[in-house]
Amino acid sequence: MLDFFKRYQTPLLFCLLLLCALLLYSNSLRQRQHTSLFEKAVLQLASPFYRTIDSVCRDSARRWNDYIDLIDVRQKNIQLRKQVRFQKQRLLQLRETEQENIRLKNLLGFVQTSKLPVLPARIIAEDASSWFRTITIDKGSTDGVVEGLPVVVAEGIVGRTIKCGHNSSRVLLVIDASSEVAALVQHNRTRGITRGKGAQLTFDYALRSMDVHPGDSVVTAGTGGVFPKGLPIGTISQVVKHSYGLFQTLELIPSVDFSRLEDVLVLLPESP
């Protein structure tokens, strides 16, 4: 027996490792909303690096725009160019401030209409792979964020928190294929479920008899237990009716432009 183990030590350990990996994955499947100690530790470890890289990237981009292209200025134009540079910098800052102002005003408008306490957060990273649609925000459990909280912007829903570290959290975007949100068509209250499709959404289980058209707005139904009722999800772009079946499928364009997301709001649970 011992000889057998000695002879096949490597393949046996290999199989054991594979079994461990499989068990870990299958166990995680049952506890998706749970952030393990390992995940918390790695998120915590990565958090300062994220912040540093984020601020360095922003600074570098700003400096690149403002300074690098002005290095080879001729001597006699230095004074003039300095002035231009200063004005450009001021203009860029003002534009940035203007954009930020517009974004924050929108968010503020949402905050004033929202009945739930909100936590503003900044996006600091995206999903590590190309297959999934998640983002990382700079707020974590120390700010009161827990798994399963809705994340929104003024235009509509963004996603929900799935993993929380101390100072950062990961958010599953509604456009991810594993994301599902209970929804209804705003004007005739047709119920269904929206699912992510990468860049767009589909609205499934809409009764075939219901009269829906491209351009109709779709909002959250408030029955899924995550998102409050009435938040915009998207607009119907296409209605797919098969020749048979009880339901029709609707293609949606999300109301949020996910490629331009910078700041988001986490809707915190009401304090008892």
């Binding site: 499989l22 870990l24 790695v42 999903d127 297959w131 999934f132 998640t134």
Partner: peptide, 16 residues
């Protein structure tokens, strides 16, 4: 497993 912390929804998928 490290990649799983930063990607996807289920811990262990990329590990496997």
């Amino acid at each position: 497993c490290l990649l799983d912390v930063f990607s996807g929804t289920t811990f262990g998928l990329y590990g496997l």
